[in-house]
Design a protein around this nucleic acid. Structure first.
Length: 552
RNA sequence: GCGCCAGUAGCUCAGCAGGAUAGAGCAACGGAUUUCUAAUCCGUAGGUCUGGGGUUCGAGUCCCUGCUGGCGUGCCA
């Protein structure tokens, strides 16, 4: 279904052609903030008047004269410096309302993305511990963006990059080894500061002990550490998947660094860089001359000890993103990784790949607030708040809502107490309650034997209150809103939208009686209206991964 | 030092790629329940959009610059 704005846009173009007027096609059709400015307004005359040697108001007049005769418009007025304000006939809204109901769960979706292939990489937390709240934000953001982009017609894929090779993982294995020894009575004097201190390592050691007992002492150290590593990686991966499931976040692919190494992609990437004359040897290391691509200084690719730096697998990984034929590559990164992107961009340029395909979204820090104070988190000391704890504490729905509600590159204060409150202070319940409330009204109607089955569309003309038309108008914003969310990679707009729609419904509910057997046709019309609202709220919440309860 | 991000009501934040009189929630104060679920609604109050320049019909939004805060700037990942 064509969004209302697009319909008006095309009416205007047709009219301009008819009048042989030139125009700047970047003009906008918008819903004005002020209801007195009509249902929709456009700045077409303001930005195109000069091209026709006309004053903006004069040009607007010509358009208004022609379009004003169309039946769809109740009025077309000129305002201010040359805005055109449109008021639509009620019947247009009524027809649209029917379409919302008929579209069911597909309302709001579009083919805007034309099947463009989009790779969304998010979370990609190290496989060295449970997921924390930073991952939680990334998960909520990435997954919602995935849902929204899919609904807007993109072919999107979710990917989690697992750094299951290299230094961190070696340290993980060593940490586990120490805890395992401890379990067997050895006294560990100084638990190394760079090791992982969290209690989960002790649990892993205990689990490992249940499986393998003490037999690991009878194999070589190399074999033992390999066993430790694989065991830890497996277990932690399972932990992460499990928490993400509770958070309703899934991935289409877990890309393993180890696998990239095994398949020789690192060498492939390095050879491409060498072919492009972008590498050189110095101080027994191999360097990437990234400065010629805008980086501050050149970077080491292969260390003096012969091992690659973390940059190499990352370049290799991104090489595969391009090789797999994605049109848009979105990296969702934490705040501490932005220094890294200059190097990566340099590498992509060096490889001769299209840099415009790569987009980076930075998610800023999160402060958890408890009793007005910031909860201190420290990974080293094992003092982290995990995704699991967060879900146990405030629930999946509230957690997701709070993360999605903020725009990605803004710092986020997460008030744990507020998220827990089951009251009007908590916006997520406000939205869900609107949905539950509508359901309860529908049930009540059923009880009073008012059914929508014998409802006649022509009775919709009973819906003539401004509040009712505004509700329809609001619902009609969804399709273009979802496109905006998808294009700007900003799901937070959707959170604001549901909140507004829920608010409009709550006010409508307070003001008007919906179920009234003395006014059957009116009741049915209003039930029809609120069914549509219920549908739109459910769709929106679902796109954010939040449940829409029928009862609260 | 350099780079990235941010600075809007007492607090937390929106502001829909430059539009008309800057919005919402919370907190504060005053009101509304024999209900269609009060997890709601109505009302009051609250602002030099960090300071300064510029671009144009028009700037919270774009450009330059100052200030403040966060982060980054490893042969760690």
């Amino acid at each position: 279904m064509l969004p209302m704005k697009d319909k008006i846009y095309s009416h205007i173009i047709k009219c301009l052609d008819q009048l042989k007027l030139k125009y700047n096609k970047d003009f906008l059709v918008e819903v004005p903030n002020n209801i007195e400015h009509g249902d929709f307004s456009t700045n077409v005359a303001l930005i195109s008047a000069k091209m026709n040697n006309l004053k903006p108001r004069k040009m607007a007049e010509k358009i208004a004269d022609t379009l004003g005769r169309k039946r769809s418009y109740r009025s077309v007025e000129i305002a201010g410096p040359g805005f055109l304000n449109f008021r639509l006939s009620n019947s247009i809204y009524h027809e649209a309302l029917v379409k919302i109901i008929k579209a069911k769960k597909t309302f709001g979706s579009s083919d805007h993305g034309r099947g463009k292939k989009v790779l969304l990489e998010f979370i990609s937390a190290n496989p060295t511990g449970p997921l924390n709240v930073v991952s939680a934000r990334a998960g909520a953001y990435g997954d919602s963006l995935y849902r929204i982009m899919t609904s807007a017609g993109f072919e999107a894929f979710r990917e989690f990059y697992v750094n299951d090779a290299g230094n961190q993982v070696a340290i993980l294995a060593e940490s586990l080894e120490l805890r395992y020894r401890e379990l067997h009575g050895e006294k560990i004097e100084d638990f190394p500061i760079e090791a992982y201190h969290g209690d989960y390592i002790k649990e892993l050691a205990a689990n490992l002990n249940t499986v393998d007992g003490s037999k690991l002492f009878h194999i070589s150290e190399e074999e033992r550490l390999e066993r430790m590593k694989n065991f830890a990686l497996d277990e932690i991966h399972k932990m992460q998947v499990e928490s993400l499931e509770k958070f309703d976040v899934q991935f289409d692919n877990w890309m393993s660094e180890k696998k990239l190494r095994q398949e020789g992609i690192l060498e492939e990437a390095l050879s491409y860089l060498a072919e492009a004359n972008c590498t050189y040897e110095k101080d027994d290391a191999i360097w990437f001359s990234s400065t010629q691509f805008g980086d501050e200084k050149d970077r080491v690719l292969i260390k003096t000890d012969g091992n690659p730096t973390y940059l190499v697998p990352d370049i290799a990984y991104h090489l595969t993103k391009y090789q797999r034929g994605f049109d848009v590559i979105i990296d969702v990164l934490g705040p501490d990784h932005h220094g890294h992107v200059a190097k990566l961009r340099a590498a992509i340029l060096a490889l001769g790949l299209n840099i415009d395909k790569l987009e980076v979204v930075y998610l800023q820090h999160i402060n958890l607030i408890q009793k007005g104070e910031v909860v201190k988190m420290s990974k080293r000391a094992g003092k982290i708040v995990t995704l699991n704890e967060l879900i146990d504490e405030v629930g999946k729905d509230a957690a997701r809502y709070f993360f999605i509600d903020r725009k990605p590159n803004a710092h986020l204060n997460f008030d744990l107490e507020l998220a827990k409150k089951k009251s009007n202070e908590n916006p997520v319940f406000y939205c869900q309650y609107a949905h539950a409330r509508i359901n309860s009204i529908l049930k009540k109607a059923k009880k009073e034997k008012i059914s929508l089955k014998e409802f006649e569309i022509k009775n919709l003309k009973k819906l003539n209150k401004n509040d009712e038309l505004s509700l329809i108008k609001k619902m009609l914003e969804l399709p273009s809103l979802l496109i905006t969310c998808a294009e700007s990679r900003e799901p937070h707009r959707l959170a604001g939208y549901v909140h507004e729609l829920a608010g409009m419904f709550h006010r409508y509910y307070a003001k008007y009686k919906i179920v009234d057997s003395n006014h059957l046709e009116l009741s049915q019309s209003r039930l029809f209206l609120i069914s549509a609202i219920k549908n739109v709220i459910a769709i929106s919440l679902d796109l954010m991964g939040i449940s829409a309860p029928n009862k609260m």
